[in-house]
Amino acid sequence: NDEAKKEAEKLWKNNKSEDEIKERLERAGISPDEAEQWLQELR
Score class of each variant (00 low, 15 high):
N15M: 05
W38V: 06
E3I: 11
E34I: 14
E3V: 09
L25M: 06
L39R: 00
N1L: 14
I21R: 00
N15Y: 08
E41N: 09
N15K: 06
S17T: 09
D33H: 10
A8P: 00
E23W: 06
R43L: 07
L25V: 01
E41Y: 11
A28I: 13
E20Q: 05
N15E: 04
E26S: 07
L11Y: 06
W12Q: 01
E26H: 13
L11D: 08
S31A: 08
E18G: 04
S17P: 05
L39E: 01
E9H: 12
E7R: 03
E36C: 10
K6M: 09
N14I: 07
K22Q: 03
E18L: 12
S31P: 12
E26W: 09
L11A: 06
D19K: 13
A35S: 05
E20P: 00
N1A: 14
E18S: 08
Q40E: 11
W38C: 04
A35W: 09
E20G: 02
E34K: 11
W38N: 00
L25K: 00
E34Q: 13
S17D: 09
A8C: 14
R24F: 15
E34M: 14
L11T: 02
A4G: 05
N1Y: 15
A28V: 07
Q40T: 09
I30W: 12
K6Y: 07
K5H: 03
K13M: 12
E34F: 04
D19L: 12
E18D: 10
L42I: 09
A8G: 04
S31W: 03
D2E: 13
L11R: 00
E18A: 10
N14M: 13
S17V: 02
I21N: 01
L39N: 00
N14L: 13
E18M: 10
K13G: 06
Q37G: 04
K16V: 15
W38E: 01
E23M: 07
R43W: 06
D2A: 12
E36M: 09
A4C: 15
E3K: 10
A8Y: 04
E9K: 10
K13F: 12
P32W: 10
A8Q: 01
E9N: 04
A8M: 11
N15A: 07
E9A: 13
I21A: 03
D19Y: 07
D2R: 10
E9V: 11
I30H: 03
K22L: 12
R27N: 13
W38F: 13
Q37K: 13
K5P: 01
S31E: 06
W12F: 10
S31Y: 03
R27L: 14
K13I: 09
E7A: 06
K5E: 03
L25Y: 00
E18I: 13
D19S: 13
E18V: 12
K16I: 15
A28T: 04
W38D: 00
K22G: 01
P32C: 05
K16C: 15
E7S: 05
R24E: 13
G29L: 01
A4H: 10
D33E: 14
K16E: 08
K13E: 07
K5Q: 03
E3D: 12
R43G: 03
E26K: 11
E20M: 06
D2T: 11
E20I: 07
K6L: 10
G29E: 04
W12D: 01
K6E: 06
L42C: 06
E41I: 09
K13H: 11
E7Q: 07
L25S: 00
R24H: 15
N15H: 10
S31L: 08
R27P: 06
A35C: 13
N14Q: 14
S31T: 11
D2N: 11
L42G: 01
L25R: 00
A35D: 00
